[in-house]
Design a protein around this nucleic acid. Sequence first.
DNA 1: GCCAACGTTGGC
DNA 2: GCCAACGTTGGC
Length: 149
Amino acid sequence: MPTFLLKTEPGEFSFDDLVAKKLATWDGVANPGALATLRTIRKGDELLIYHTGDEKAIVGIAIATSDPYEDPKQRGLTPDGKPKFAVLDVKPLRTGKTDAHGRVPKPVTLAAIKADARFKDFALVRQARLSVMAVPVELDRAIRALAGP
DNA sequence: GCCAACGTTGGC
DNA sequence: GCCAACGTTGGC
């Protein structure tokens, strides 16, 4: 089961907001590359949630509770007439690496990831502006090891 | 606050 | 279809 990384600006929607809501629709993805990756996510895939801005760290784990579907709030079309925007339902996921609400004990910072040679080709490092990306399995393992406990 | 790295838009 | 100008994102 593939893992993905989703970025969010915590001032707009934070992992704590997701914990409070228990279930949320992950919307607002507009970048075509990010949308293309989002459309490959399937129900049951695990999602590493990253806070941009001041935090710059992976702070929690979530799970897709739906396949991607057309954004009901933004029904734009691509030039070839297909829905442009897709969204996804997500909820926090408790794992052996998280607390009861899906938060990781030790947020994995961008600085730590950049300092680790294993991540040198990771999209988080290579493409700062990409907001949805696949996480190769070995990097997923490395991130979860860094996240503790 | 700045700016690099994109992405988008519109005139041609 | 190209590309210059402009806008946006996110790290620094």
